[in-house]
């Protein structure tokens, strides 16, 4: 099996809304992939397709080597899934729920379960129905990882968790990657968290894949230039193709550039300007990645 999941021309429409538009993705090897996009961009729909919970209108989805519509026992025992809307059995206690779910899997790591309950400070005897949203999220994660999945899919897993618990969870995802060589797909709005752990970034915009790159490559691709002219005013508008955002004021300008490294010397001499270059982090890059539109 070459890829952990793969989509080819995946398209899904709901009446007039195109939720996914010819999505081509291939995710392989142990990796942590960040799935980003504005609300309504198709992230949850894509995840639902990977899990076989929704079926393609056009195109195909393959998860762990099988068409997602046909995922069976042999694949499901290797997948862990934390949905955005967590629905668990309210009337059970945390402990009972864990025990119940563990019966579905040939192997269940009780040590990991115990350690996570402890680290995430979740009381085993509490009824699931009485858990706060944050604690529900914690339980959902523990339920998804004790069988040592090869593929872990998390849809907004940290939105209700406090910073300390989020930190612990992210550290655990890295541990999963290291120890289990899992492939992890995490969709989250908390870009600062995503940035700490992912090595690959996929961005959706209106159902289309607009970014599909290594995080390092993105950081090297985009940067901000503070430009100061040594002789007189700068042009009102820079029309160079690598300038994707700009703010110009007299002798000064702030430019957002894409693949600007090879252009910087020529630019300096063309405009007789000093340039101070600053890289962008994921949060700063997000508007550019998602819409290729930007301001400084």
């Amino acid at each position: 099996m070459e890829f952990v999941f793969e989509t080819n021309g995946l398209t899904k429409r709901f009446d007039e809304v195109t939720a996914l538009d010819r999505v081509d993705l291939k995710i392989g090897r142990p990796s942590i992939v960040g799935l980003l996009g504005k609300n309504g961009s198709g992230k949850t729909t894509l995840i639902n397709h990977l899990m076989g919970l929704q079926l393609p209108g056009e195109g195909s989805v393959t998860t762990l080597g099988r068409p997602s519509a046909e995922l069976g026992h042999d694949e499901l025992i290797h997948i862990g899934y934390v949905p955005q809307e967590i629905r668990l059995l309210d009337w059970m206690t945390v402990e009972q729920h864990l025990h119940y779910v563990s019966c579905f899997y040939p192997k269940w790591d009780r040590e990991r379960e115990k350690r996570l309950l402890d680290e995430l400070e979740l009381e085993a005897s509490k009824p699931v129905g009485a858990l706060s949203t944050g604690n529900l999220q914690k339980l959902a994660v523990i339920l998804a990882v004790c069988h040592h999945p090869h593929l872990l899919v998390l849809d907004e897993p940290v939105s209700d968790l406090d910073p300390i618990v989020r930190e612990k969870l992210l550290a655990f995802l890295l541990e999963l990657l290291r120890e289990d060589e899992a492939t992890i797909l995490v969709s989250s709005h908390v870009l600062r968290d995503v940035e700490k752990v992912v090595d690959w970034v996929v961005c959706l915009d209106e159902g289309r894949v607009v970014t599909d790159s290594a995080l390092d490559e993105l950081k090297e691709r985009y940067s901000r230039w503070r430009v100061v002219s040594k002789n007189g005013d700068l042009p009102e508008i820079f029309s160079e193709p690598f300038v994707i955002g700009q703010e110009v004021s007299g002798r000064e300008a702030c430019l957002l550039v894409e693949n600007g490294a090879s252009q910087i010397d020529a630019f300096r001499s063309t405009y007789g300007a000093e340039i101070v270059e600053r890289p962008l982090n994921l949060e700063e890059m997000f508007p550019v990645l998602v819409q290729k539109k930007s301001s400084c």
């Binding site: 890295l174 541990e175 090595d199 390092d216």
Partner: peptide, 14 residues
């Protein structure tokens, strides 16, 4: 690689 990635809290591939 493992120890350092655990210590720094970063992806081991990094």
């Amino acid at each position: 690689t493992r120890a350092l990635s655990a210590k720094l809290g970063v992806n081991p591939m990094t």
